[in-house]
Each structure stands twice: as structure tokens, then as C-alpha cells.
Design a protein around this nucleic acid. Structure first.
Lengths: 234, 234
DNA sequence: TCAATAATTAGAACGTGTTCTAAATTTATC
DNA sequence: GATAAATTTAGAACACGTTCTAATTATTGA
């Protein structure tokens, strides 16, 4: 039996680890250039075929790197700032802190994820992580509703959905280069505040208004001028 | 002199036209498969080098197809429904009507645009179109503010920005397949309504509330179940 | 009409992600 | 320890986007 700690499975896990580590290091060191499957295999000391056997595609490898780096749920648990509105924006800044604290790395990573995003199975994230993240945000907004900040006539699922799209859209703009790193967090924060404000009671509007002005000043001290607006599509 | 109607420039424009048309037809007919530069050149009856001479990259060709198809500004002028809030959502449905009326075509197109989006110059749209679209939306929201629907303590630019991110994020979800075609327009509509609601006076809230419930019912008669939520990132 | 100029062309070439085959190596089972 | 099963391996191969060179064709200007 030996369950899944068989020597075979163990060696496989070892190789998987080596591959993910090699991919991470290559992105860190050479930013996009030289993240080819051939150099990756060489760096991980496996053959070119092995990553395909163990992951299936380059996309999957890069996605594994991403999952390996961001440990959102774990870090999130250490987050217990003031009221439930504060916690929402704490989570937001935690999430985007990953990107802004290491922009080159994550930009490259997402770019690689987008570039190969095509006809295959995997989306832009693992289904488990998607569900997990969704649950976290539903919980955050649920708390805000419980605490009387949000009115009950707009389902929190819809707010979460809108917020997810804001973050996804901003991330896309950032990855393709039309949104600067320093503008990323405040821009999304403003979007969040707007959405939430559209569904909040007077008690919540005060808190949101202050968030809003904070992000607004962050935004103005920075990018300022033109050419960095980024209404991407229509 | 002969300005730019010289025979040379004329022939160049002809080739450009043939290439764009061939790309469009290929996408229409074979959806993604067989949109290679080699078959494209063959179809347009030019050599493989010519598209690179005239456009620079495959991305640029596909982008030219996109610009050629969507004539947003022109169609938009024919749009003069009721109040300024109605016009906002009219513009929204006009914009996304392109995608939902020919989903396979536009999905392929955007996928090709994303897949090659990388290290080169062009973003996800032409700078002129970006500016044009932005101007349109600024005008729409400006009218809504003038008509007293929007409160003045949140800058219109920020609302436009948030809305642009919602549409971009939803489009991305749709392209990668985590948002269904029928859910696309209502999802974005709800996001818009939420954002606007966060910055609107009581007079506007009524109108927005009705928009909201319309899109909500559209959404519920459709996708329903799980696996189609799509909080893409965090 | 003739030379100069500009563009397209054919074709090879490079590096890429991915797939495949056959051989070699490791692990599991008796 | 020998046999069978599972994986990795080396290496070729494919289609792709892109770039380059040399040759050819078409347009311009005198």
C-alpha cells in the first residue's frame, strides 16, 4: 500500500518542487526573458518532457508558482483590524500588497499566465483558490451587512461579483502596462468604495467616504498626468 | 506630390485591407484554429513578410480587425433614449451587444489579442479609441451630473475609471470562459449600477434601482447554478 | 525611356510550446 | 534477486510567430 508516500510518489513530488522552484527563480532573475521550457527543465535538472508529464503545460507550471507564493488565506487570518469595513479594505491591501511589493515578479507571472491562456482547461486560477477567495469575500461582506453597514436590498453576491471584476480589470490593466504600480491599490480601493457605497447605509457611508478620500489622495500624489488612465475596453 | 493617394500608398492600403479581411474571415470561419500568419498570408494573397511590413505583428493585425468591426462612436450617435441614466445603460448595452451578438467571433478575437499581448508597444486597444471611448463616457456621466442624478462630491473621472475596470474585468472573465455570454451584459450592468448608485442623488437612485432589478432578473433566468461566478483573481 | 527608389517576395532560419517514440532507469511485486 | 510496471529521458519532430537576406517587381522622377 504505502498510501501516497510511496517512493515513486515521493520522487515525483520532489521533481515537482524542483520545477516550481526553478520557474520562480528564473522569473525572479531574468524577468520573462529565458522562461522557456528548455531552460526551465535544465535549471530543474529534469528533462524537457518531465514538466509536461507532471504539470501538463507551461501555464500550469506558472500557475503552480503563483499558488505557491500567495498564501492569501493564511495571511488573511492574521487580519483583525477595527470594524468590518476596515477589514474589507485591509484584505484588499493585503491582496494587492503582493503585487505592489514585488511588481516585476508578479507582472511577469501574470503575463505568462495570460499569454498561454487559451484553449486548455485551466482558467486564471485554481478552482479551489477561486472558491476559497470567494468565500472569504462573502464572509467579509456578510459581516459588514450583519454590522448594519450594508443595506439588505442588494444581495452581497452581486457586490462581491462587481468587486471581483474591478480587481480583475485593474489587474489586467496593470499587467498590460496601462496602470502604474503605484496607482493599482488606490484605484481598486476607490472602485470597491464606490460599489460598497452604492449598497450601504448612512452608517457605512461615513467610513467609506474616508477610505475614498485616502485613496484619492494616494492617487493624486502619484501618476498625476495623462496617459495612465486605462479604460481598457469600451 | 500626389499626397498620399500615390499609386504606391494606394496599393499598400489595398493589401492592408485584404489582410484585415482575410483575418476576419478566418476567425469567422475557423474560430481560432488556423489563424496562423502563414494561412493568413495565403488567404490574403500576400507573402508572409507583408503583414509584418504593414502591421508589425499578428497582434496588430487582429487589433485592426477589432477596430474595423466595432464602430462604437458612430453607432453611439444614433442613441438618444430617455434620460441621461437611460443613455448610460443604452451605451453599455450597445457596447456589449457587439460581443453577445457574435460571441465566438469576439471571443476568438480577444483571445488572440490577449495571447500575444506582451512585450511590444500596443496595449489592448488603440490609444485613439481609448481616448474616444473615455470621452464618450465622461460625456455621458457629465450629463447625468448636470441633470442632477449624480452628487458632486465624487469626481466623474473616478466613476468612469471604476466602470472601465468592471467592463474590462468582465470581458476578461468572459474571454477565459468563466463568465457565460448570457451573463455578460447583466453582470456588467449590475456593476455599473452599483458604482453609480454609490455616487448618485435620491433622484438617480430610483432609476438605478430599476436598472438593477432588470439585470438581476436577466441574470437569474440564466446561468443559475455554480461554476459560473468568476471572481477571477483575489 | 531609363535610372533610382520603394515595396513585396521567396525562402531559410531562430526560438518557442508541445507531442511523440523508443530506450534507459527506477520502483514495486513475487 | 528476477520480473513486471511506471516514469523519466534523449531526441526528433511539428506548427507557430518572428526576423533576416537576397532577389524580384512595381512605382516614381527626370
Amino acid at each position: 500500500m504505502t498510501e501516497d508516500v510511496s517512493k515513486r510518489e515521493q520522487a515525483k513530488a520532489e521533481r515537482r518542487r524542483r520545477i516550481v522552484r526553478a520557474a520562480r527563480d528564473l522569473i525572479r532573475e531574468t524577468g520573462d526573458t529565458d522562461l522557456s521550457m528548455r531552460t526551465l527543465a535544465q535549471r530543474a535538472e529534469v528533462s524537457l518532457s518531465t514538466p509536461y508529464n507532471l504539470f501538463g503545460s507551461k501555464r500550469a507550471v506558472v500557475l503552480a508558482v503563483l499558488e505557491d507564493e500567495r498564501d492569501f488565506a493564511k495571511r488573511f487570518r492574521k487580519l483583525n483590524a477595527g470594524n468590518s469595513i476596515d477589514r474589507i479594505f485591509g484584505a484588499h491591501e493585503l491582496a494587492f500588497g503582493y503585487y505592489t511589493s514585488d511588481p516585476d515578479f508578479y507582472r511577469t507571472l501574470w503575463r505568462a499566465l495570460l499569454s498561454t491562456s487559451g484553449h486548455d482547461d485551466t482558467g486564471l486560477a485554481t478552482p479551489e483558490r477561486l472558491a476559497q477567495t470567494r468565500a472569504i469575500w462573502l464572509g467579509l461582506l456578510g459581516n459588514a451587512a450583519r454590522d448594519g453597514f450594508l443595506s439588505k436590498d442588494v444581495p452581497i453576491e452581486l457586490i462581491v461579483q462587481a468587486m471581483a471584476q474591478i480587481s480583475g480589470g485593474a489587474l489586467l490593466s496593470w499587467v498590460v502596462g496601462s496602470l502604474s504600480t503605484s496607482a493599482l491599490t488606490p484605484t481598486v480601493g476607490i472602485g470597491y468604495a464606490l460599489c460598497l457605497n452604492g449598497a450601504s447605509n448612512p452608517s457605512g457611508k461615513n467610513l467609506l467616504q474616508s477610505k475614498m478620500s485616502v485613496y484619492q489622495s494616494e492617487l493624486s500624489t502619484v501618476g498625476s498626468g495623462a496617459a495612465e488612465y486605462s479604460p481598457e475596453t469600451m
